Amino acid sequence: MASQGTKRSYEQMETDGERQNATEIRASVGKMIGGIGRFYIQMCTELKLSDYEGRLIQNSLTIERMVLSAFDERRNKYLEEHPSAGKDPKKTGGPIYRRVNGKWMRELILYDKEEIRRIWRQANNGDDATAGLTHMMIWHSNLNDATYQRTRALVRTGMDPRMCSLMQGSTLPRRSGAAGAAVKGVGTMVMELVRMIKRGINDRNFWRGENGRKTRIAYERMCNILKGKFQTAAQKAMMDQVRESRNPGNAEFEDLTFLARSALILRGSVAHKSCLPACVYGPAVASGYDFEREGYSLVGIDPFRLLQNSQVYSLIRPNENPAHKSQLVWMACHSAAFEDLRVLSFIKGTKVLPRGKLSTRGVQIASNENMETMESSTLELRSRYWAIRTRSGGNTNQQRASAGQISIQPTFSVQRNLPFDRTTIMAAFNGNTEGRTSDMRTEIIRMMESARPEDVSFQGRGVFELSDEKAASPIVPSFDMSNEGSYFFGDNAEEYDN
Rank of each mutant, 00 (worst) to 15 (best):
M1G: 12
T15H: 14
S28C: 14
I33M: 14
G54P: 13
I57S: 04
R65A: 02
D72R: 01
E73L: 09
R74T: 07
E80R: 09
K90M: 02
I96L: 15
R99N: 03
R99C: 14
M105T: 09
Y111H: 12
G126N: 08
A131N: 05
A131T: 05
A146D: 02
T147N: 14
L154A: 04
V155T: 11
V155P: 01
R162V: 06
L166K: 05
Q168A: 14
S170P: 05
P173W: 09
K184I: 07
G187C: 06
G187I: 01
V190N: 14
I197K: 02
K198M: 06
K198F: 08
R199T: 11
G200C: 08
D203L: 05
R204E: 02
G212A: 09
T215K: 13
A218D: 11
N224E: 11
K236E: 13
V242K: 06
E254F: 07
L256C: 11
L259R: 04
L259T: 06
S269T: 12
A271G: 15
P277K: 05
S287W: 01
D290T: 14
R293S: 09
Y296G: 05
S297V: 03
D302I: 00
L307P: 08
N309L: 11
L315D: 01
I316S: 14
N319Q: 04
S326C: 13
W330G: 04
A337M: 10
F338K: 11
S345K: 04
V352T: 15
R361P: 04
G362V: 09
S367V: 07
N370F: 14
M374L: 09
S377W: 02
T378S: 15
I388C: 07
T390A: 09
R391D: 01
R391W: 04
R391V: 14
T396C: 06
R400Q: 09
S407F: 00
Q409R: 07
V414Y: 09
L418K: 02
F420T: 02
T423W: 04
T423G: 02
G431C: 13
D439Q: 03
E449G: 11
S457P: 06
S467G: 11
A471L: 00
P474R: 11
S478I: 09
D480Y: 09
Y487E: 05
F489N: 04
